[in-house]
Design a binder for these strands. Structure first.
Length: 231
DNA sequence: GTGATGATCTTCT
DNA sequence: GAAGATCATCACG
């Protein structure tokens, strides 16, 4: 399929690279409400970003011990040290993938982990990719299992390392894009990051306050709501 | 609802 | 050789 041929069908407008050029803790809250779009062999799928974690680059003071870039560049994390706005996809626990977007300037290796989407387009295909039966009722509990969680959203959209690592999400020709459809998030809440062993209480996880597609146990789905003007 | 357990393998030391 | 930015399932209350 020719990607360019369906450019006009994609929701909203492309988010420019300049959007990603600042530090992860500043970009992450602003990324909430944007739309992740994947146009691949199995069709168009899209979801609204409702949960993002920030991982600070090794230049940060103090350094972020939970970040993959913490000990410097390796073959795995090389994408993070390049231009901002590129997909960093890695495999985790031998069975899942996680999708990040590089940010900050070249060499600074800031990273944004996409942790949950609210599914918008291509729900049937997402369910197939996740190995779930189709469900006409589409209860919230069912929809949550599609894209609530970093491993789940990659599986739902068919994102994996071999074909998606290094893609430019700010390129109109890319099968993986971040787009802005004008949706405005009301409140952003902050919590500690999930599933890490270091810097466990740094407030670098950002969620759309009150959104049902945020991942994790109930007590982790709410947090301190950021005041107006801080985003 | 919560907490524990195991699956499974890539990456870096 | 160990750790790891996860998830599904199970027991329990």
């Amino acid at each position: 399929m020719k990607i360019g041929s369906q450019r006009g069908k994609l929701p909203g407008r492309l988010v420019p690279r300049s959007f990603f050029k600042t530090s992860p803790d500043r970009v992450a809250p602003r990324l909430l409400g944007k739309v992740l779009v994947h146009s691949g062999p199995s069709g168009l799928m899209a979801g609204r970003i409702v949960e993002v974690e920030a991982y600070l680059g090794p230049h940060n003071n103090p350094p972020d011990p939970a970040a993959h870039a913490h000990r410097g560049i390796t073959p795995r994390n090389a994408v993070l040290f390049g231009l901002s706005g590129h997909a960093y996809v890695y495999s985790i626990y031998g069975m899942y993938f996680c999708l990040n977007i590089s940010c900050e300037t070249e060499g600074h290796a800031g990273s944004l982990l996409l942790r949950a989407l609210e599914p918008l387009v291509g729900l049937e295909q997402m369910a197939r990719n996740r190995g779930l039966p189709p469900d006409a009722a589409r209860t919230e509990a069912y929809l949550r299992r599609l894209t609530s969680g970093p491993g789940r959203l990659c599986q739902a959209l068919g994102v994996e390392r071999a074909s998606h690592n290094g893609l430019d999400v700010t390129d109109a020709r890319s099968p993986l894009q971040v787009r802005d459809d004008g949706y405005a998030v009301k409140d952003v809440a902050v919590t500690p990051r999930i599933g890490i062993k270091h810097a466990v209480d740094w407030p670098l996880r950002f969620v759309v306050a009150g959104n049902g597609f945020v991942s994790g146990p109930a007590r982790m789905r709410t947090g301190r709501v950021l005041g107006a003007g801080s985003r």
